[in-house]
C-alpha cells in the first residue's frame, strides 16, 4: 500500500519536474543566449585574443553558465560550455581558476548563499569529471550579492543565476 502510493507520487513528481523544466527551458532560451557573451558564435572574434589568454577563455570559450530559477542542474547549453572550458583548461594546464557561484535577487539571502555554492560545486564537479585536476579549481559562493544585470525582470535575473569560471593564474 505504502509502496504503491509512493510510486504514484514519484511518477507524478518526475512528470511535473520534467514538464516544468521543459517549459522553463523553452521560455528562457533567448535570455540564456543573450547572456552568453559570444558563446556559440565563436568565429567572430577569435583572431583578436591570444590563445591561452584570459580574453581567449572569456570570449572564445565562454566564462559563464546559467541556471534555471532555483535550480542547480546544468542545462544542455551549460554542459556544452563547460565541456569547452574543460578542454581549454586541459590544453593550458598551467591555468588555475575559481568558480564563482551566484544567485538572482529573487530569493532570501541565506538560502541564496547555499544555492550559489551548490551551483559552483556542480560546475567544479563537471570540470573535474571532465579531466581538469581538482587542485586547479577553487570555488566561492556569492549568493545574490553580486548581480551583473540590474533590471528587475526575468531577462536580468536569468543572467544573474550563473557560475563564472574566473582565471586566477597561469594564463598568457
Amino acid at each position: 500500500m505504502m509502496m504503491t502510493r509512493l510510486a504514484g507520487f514519484k511518477m507524478a513528481a518526475i512528470c511535473c519536474c520534467f514538464l516544468a523544466l521543459a517549459a522553463c527551458s523553452k521560455k528562457n532560451q533567448p535570455d540564456l543566449d543573450a547572456g552568453l557573451n559570444g558563446q556559440g558564435n565563436g568565429g567572430v572574434d577569435v583572431g583578436s585574443q591570444a590563445p591561452g589568454s584570459k580574453g581567449d577563455f572569456d570570449k572564445n570559450v565562454g566564462d559563464r553558465v546559467f541556471f534555471l530559477n532555483d535550480q542547480t542542474s546544468l542545462t544542455p547549453e551549460a554542459a556544452d560550455t563547460l565541456t569547452k572550458q574543460a578542454d581549454w583548461l586541459k590544453q593550458y594546464s598551467g591555468v588555475s581558476v575559481q568558480v564563482e557561484g551566484h544567485a538572482d535577487e529573487r530569493g532570501t539571502r541565506e538560502y541564496n548563499i547555499s544555492l550559489s555554492a551548490r551551483r559552483a560545486t556542480t560546475v567544479r564537479g563537471f570540470l573535474i569529471s571532465h579531466g581538469v585536476p581538482g587542485n586547479r579549481i577553487s570555488s566561492i559562493a556569492y549568493g545574490k550579492e553580486r548581480p551583473v544585470a540590474l533590471c528587475d525582470a526575468e531577462q536580468c535575473w536569468s543572467q544573474n543565476r550563473r557560475a563564472v569560471t574566473v582565471i586566477t593564474g597561469g594564463a598568457k
Binding site: A13, C17, Q71, S73, T75, P76, T122, F126
Partner: peptide, 20 residues
C-alpha cells in the same frame, strides 16, 4: 535525460527526492 554528468545526475536525483 539531459546532461550525462555525474554531479548533474546527483543533482536531479536529489531534487526528485526533495519533491517526494
Amino acid at each position: 535525460a539531459f546532461a550525462d554528468d555525474v554531479s548533474n545526475r546527483v543533482d536531479s536525483l536529489e531534487q526528485q527526492v526533495h519533491q517526494l
